[in-house]
Amino acid sequence: MPAHSSDLSSDVLAGEWPSTHRIAEAVLAIWPEHERYIRKSLAGRDAAMMRTTETLAEAVLLLVSDRLDAIAAHYRWTCDRLREEELFFHREGRYRLSTFAEADAEVYSDAAYMEKYMDGLLLSQVLWFNHAASCHFFLTELPALLQPGGSLLEIGPGHGLMMSLALRDFGLSSANAWDLSEVSLDQTRAALERLGHHGCHFAVQNVMDVPADTPPADLVVLSEVLEHLEDPKSVMRKLHAQVRPETGRIFINVPINSPSPDHLYLMRTPDDARALLNDTGFEILKDGFFATQGTALERALRNKISVSACMIARPV
């Protein structure tokens, strides 16, 4: 065990949640000062949420294979970049970038930057309360609102974790993934295969240019996508036709007050997030708001602390 901490192995974390413990220890081995943050983030999770956290951790360890130490270093690098954006946000009251062209020039077109950034965000799914809570909401709230044997469409599937959870637990008949980048889809395909999921369909597809004869899906998922767009409401209006009428559902996960190197669209309140659905032809059936480190929502909003907004809706 590293000598950096008060020994996380003495916690229930080490025995009952070994994969979560392994990821936490890898990060603390190169960043001991992060222990207080991790402990506070984990302390706010009940047993059910910890089971989801452990599921995520197991998937992450499969994905990173023998690169955990390097991924942990990239997680620290990513947090440093996020801290820079937070300082700007709290000083200026806005996100630093506002156009896709800016994000592309600074982030997306820089392969080395993107590798570190995506690696860091992968570990955040386990270590950040709001990210783990969003996945837990997805897993626990959606099944009762879905028709059995339905079809899934995820837009911007990233690491593939949300799609993997849906394929494991939702009894789906088919799954499709859309992205603007063939490279990103290749990475998602490889991740899902490593996690044991085969038979998904992948397509390079711009949401604003979907063929009219494209069949609607029973579940459409956009997790941490809309904040990267200049005009997310125009995308939501286009997506209305991709959700099956009456029985179809859409799951949206967007951050509030969450400055990041490639975030463009700033939402300051839960109502700002809800407006993405309320103003574009959807009725919200269930929502949940989860702040960094489990901070109370009112306090998080008052202090402009990042909040993940999760919403399940149907087309109307």
Rank of each mutant, 00 (worst) to 15 (best):
A190H: 09
H201T: 15
N257D: 14
F202Q: 02
I284R: 08
R268H: 12
D279K: 02
F251C: 07
R249H: 08
L277F: 03
N278F: 07
M208R: 05
D262F: 07
A217N: 04
V235L: 11
D213Q: 06
S260E: 10
T269Q: 13
Y265K: 07
E227D: 13
V220F: 06
L219Q: 06
H228T: 02
T269P: 08
P232R: 04
I250S: 08
V221Q: 10
F282H: 03
K233A: 14
Q242E: 12
L239C: 15
L192T: 12
G281W: 00
N257Q: 13
E193H: 14
P211Y: 10
R237F: 00
M267S: 03
I284W: 02
L192Y: 11
D279C: 06
S260T: 11
A275C: 11
R249F: 03
I256Q: 01
I284T: 09
H228M: 01
M208K: 07
I252T: 06
A273H: 07
Q205R: 14
G281L: 05
S260Q: 12
D272E: 12
P211Q: 11
G248D: 12
H228W: 02
E283M: 09
R237H: 03
H197F: 15
R194S: 05
L222V: 12
A275E: 13
P255F: 05
V243P: 06
I250L: 15
D186H: 10
